[in-house]
Simulated scan of single mutants.
Amino acid sequence: MSLVGKKVQPFRAQAYHNGEFIEVTEQDFMGKWSIVCFYPADFTFVCPTELEDLQDHYATFKELGVEVYSVSTDTHFTHKAWHDTSPAISKIEYIMIGDPSHQLSRMFDVLDEEQGLAQRGTFLIDPDGVIQAVEINADGIGRKASTLIDKIKAAQYVRNHPGEVCPAKWQEGGETLKPSLDLVGKI
């Protein structure tokens, strides 16, 4: 069953952020846009390339009012160790959530039960804590942060312009559609 349109359920998790251990809850998603990126494991191969790409676009996310959270089934201690040793991960300024209990991975339906690892799931959450977009990739397929920026801009536009929708390939400033009876069969 799709999580799109569903509100994020209550949770508590430990995270690593800017040299400190912090607690994150569903309340942290409220009042702003959030991107939650699940990935299989620290100290791996595709994962650091994705997380570094998110960091490379972090200033743009912040300009759009978006906070980024990465999540794996590793602990927050492992996130710190990875941050301290990897050139790519040492750049990260966003919050790295640990999910060793698999609570979040199950809640977002990205847990590979056999491996005990999260799949590559990306979730766009609106300021009300409601999931607006979901993408799940196979382990070998890395994600590109710039495509998230386009989705965020479209989701924010739709939220701020009730009655309008963004067509395929929509870019900021592009034409939108106003669904109505007179458009049926004309697109």
Rank of each mutant, 00 (worst) to 15 (best):
G121N: 04
Q171E: 12
Q55G: 04
I35Y: 05
S86W: 11
V110E: 08
T147F: 10
P179Y: 04
I187V: 13
V46I: 08
V134Y: 02
E93W: 00
T73Y: 08
N160Y: 04
G65Q: 15
A41D: 03
T85R: 12
P100I: 05
K6E: 15
P179T: 07
Y39G: 06
L183E: 11
G173P: 04
E114H: 12
G173M: 13
Q14P: 00
Q55P: 08
T73M: 14
L183N: 14
Q14E: 14
Q156V: 07
Q27E: 15
H161N: 15
F61K: 03
D139H: 09
T25F: 07
S70K: 04
H57L: 15
G98V: 02
M107E: 05
F29M: 08
A154Q: 11
E26S: 12
A138G: 10
A168D: 11
I187N: 07
D74R: 03
W33N: 01
K32D: 09
N18R: 09
G98A: 03
D99H: 00
R159H: 06
V46K: 00
V71N: 01
T122E: 05
V68T: 12
Y16M: 03
P127F: 10
S105N: 02
S72D: 09
A118D: 08
F38V: 02
F21W: 11
T147K: 14
W170C: 03
H161V: 12
F61G: 03
I187T: 15
M30Q: 12
M1S: 13
Q103E: 14
A154C: 11
V36K: 04
I22Q: 03
D112H: 10
A145R: 02
S34C: 05
M1K: 13
L183R: 15
V46G: 02
V36E: 06
F108D: 02
I125P: 00
G174F: 14
Q171M: 12
G142A: 11
T25Y: 06
E63R: 12
E67M: 13
E172M: 04
E164D: 05
R106N: 07
Q14G: 03
I125H: 01
S101E: 06
V36H: 03
V24G: 01
I149M: 12
K7E: 11
Y94R: 00
H83V: 02
Y39S: 03
T122W: 09
V110M: 13
E93K: 11
S2N: 11
G163F: 03
S34R: 03
K144E: 13
E114P: 06
V68D: 02
A155I: 01
V158M: 10
S70I: 02
K186F: 04
G173H: 14
T49F: 09
S86Y: 06
